[in-house]
Measured scan of single mutants.
Amino acid sequence: MAAAAAAGAGPEMVRGQVFDVGPRYTNLSYIGEGAYGMVCSAYDNVNKVRVAIKKISPFEHQTYCQRTLREIKILLRFRHENIIGINDIIRAPTIEQMKDVYIVQDLMETDLYKLLKTQHLSNDHICYFLYQILRGLKYIHSANVLHRDLKPSNLLLNTTCDLKICDFGLARVADPDHDHTGFLTEYVATRWYRAPEIMLNSKGYTKSIDIWSVGCILAEMLSNRPIFPGKHYLDQLNHILGILGSPSQEDLNCIINLKARNYLLSLPHKNKVPWNRLFPNADSKALDLLDKMLTFNPHKRIEVEQALAHPYLEQYYDPSDEPIAEAPFKFDMELDDLPKEKLKELIFEETARFQPGYRS
């Protein structure tokens, strides 16, 4: 834990890192770190609560700039109880001085990944967590956004079992017609939660990839272990087919990539493993919904509104309290091709509203 900075004593240090967030945020305490930044909790002297502050230093890398800009653009436009918001952003007053960006968010005690390492969940908890994931996802999908990296560590939890989806750095506007060349190379989302079509096709992607990830998360809540822990690309596919069985001819016809289709045709026939054999203690309604989410063919996979209306979630289902976005989200430009200098300018502009004396 960093010592509390005395008023006016300059930035606090946390594990050798400068955290320049005073005077409003003090009493910093280390939480963890990701690929390009550290997260601390801090005391907000204005709202009198502890908050989470993520320090991001992305400006050396085009990919990190892209992810940072995506996350900020999306989260500043989203407003939903099951999606983490941005409360404040701290950065230098000029673009030349801006080396880091500090993002202030609600402090959540833990995440689903940490929880599943230590606790076996009751059916009631599984049901409530799944409902909140789908409630947040309904809003995301209504904005025409794909999260693309749903996994237990991106689901934040607090002691009252509130759940918030975080990390929109890989999110995209849904565009089933656009052929994202190089899709697989830039697709760094965790393999275990990846839909089979991501490994088999490169053309376009749809909201059904997020539903697949939610199915993987439900299976993990039922058993405290990942359902498809593939060691590499082909191993991942083999794990999936080992449980779902061989795809039907109709399902194979959806695979545009001939090499991928021929690979699947070359494999020995596998039978589907019954879900109640894998999860003998699970609620039968939970397994019915799991089956509809972990469907090989993305066109037959359940959609988020149908999933919310499934009998497993009937005690929570309330369409009048499951809000959607006001308007579909649009990125003005494809960020993939922009140089990091341009992305830095866009991050600077996007964060201006939090600067003292800002006038829109």
Rank of each mutant, 00 (worst) to 15 (best):
I95H: 10
D251V: 02
A7C: 08
R91V: 12
A352Q: 07
F129W: 10
S320A: 12
A282L: 12
K99R: 06
N158Y: 02
M108V: 10
Y36F: 01
N257T: 01
L112H: 10
Y263K: 06
S57D: 11
P196T: 00
N262S: 07
L200Y: 10
I83H: 08
L155G: 04
E186D: 02
I133Q: 11
G22T: 10
S41G: 13
R135M: 10
R50T: 14
R79W: 10
I227D: 08
R172H: 10
D210Y: 00
R277S: 00
Q236S: 06
V104I: 03
E96K: 02
S360F: 09
S41I: 14
Q66N: 13
N262E: 03
G136P: 12
L163H: 07
I74M: 10
L200H: 08
I72V: 10
E71M: 01
L134G: 02
K164W: 10
R67P: 12
I324N: 05
I347R: 02
V18N: 14
V21G: 09
T160E: 06
M199P: 05
S41T: 05
S57F: 02
T295G: 13
L184N: 02
V188N: 05
L130S: 07
R191F: 08
K270S: 12
I31C: 15
K285T: 08
K340G: 01
Q355P: 15
L267Q: 01
L289D: 05
V173I: 09
D44N: 01
Y316N: 00
D162F: 11
D235R: 02
A307T: 05
L234P: 02
A143C: 09
R70F: 08
R15Q: 05
A52P: 05
N123I: 01
V304E: 10
Y312T: 04
I126D: 02
E345Q: 13
T68K: 04
N224E: 08
I243F: 01
H80W: 15
Y187W: 05
L156G: 01
I211H: 01
R148L: 00
R77Q: 03
N144G: 06
P298F: 14
Q249G: 11
H310E: 12
M221G: 06
R148Y: 02
P356H: 02
I165G: 03
K285G: 05
T351Y: 15
D179R: 05
L258R: 12
Y233R: 03
L28N: 14
Y193E: 01
A5S: 03
G357A: 05
Y205T: 02
H141T: 10
L184I: 03
K114F: 07
P323E: 10
L156N: 05
A171H: 03
I347H: 08
P323Q: 14
D288M: 12
L146C: 06
M333K: 00
F129P: 07
L75I: 15
L267P: 06
I95W: 10
I83Q: 12
L241K: 07
A5I: 14
G8M: 15
E341V: 03
S29G: 09
A195D: 00
R194F: 03
D332F: 14
A171C: 12
N158S: 00
K285I: 00
N253K: 03
I84N: 00
N201T: 08
E220S: 04
F78N: 05
L146S: 06
G8H: 11
T181N: 07
L265N: 11
G242I: 14
Y187K: 04
Y128D: 06
L200C: 09
D283I: 06
Q62R: 09
D100R: 13
D124V: 02
G22L: 12
L146G: 05
K203W: 04
L338V: 13
D106K: 14
H80K: 14
I165P: 04
E12R: 05
S142T: 03
T110V: 08
A352R: 06
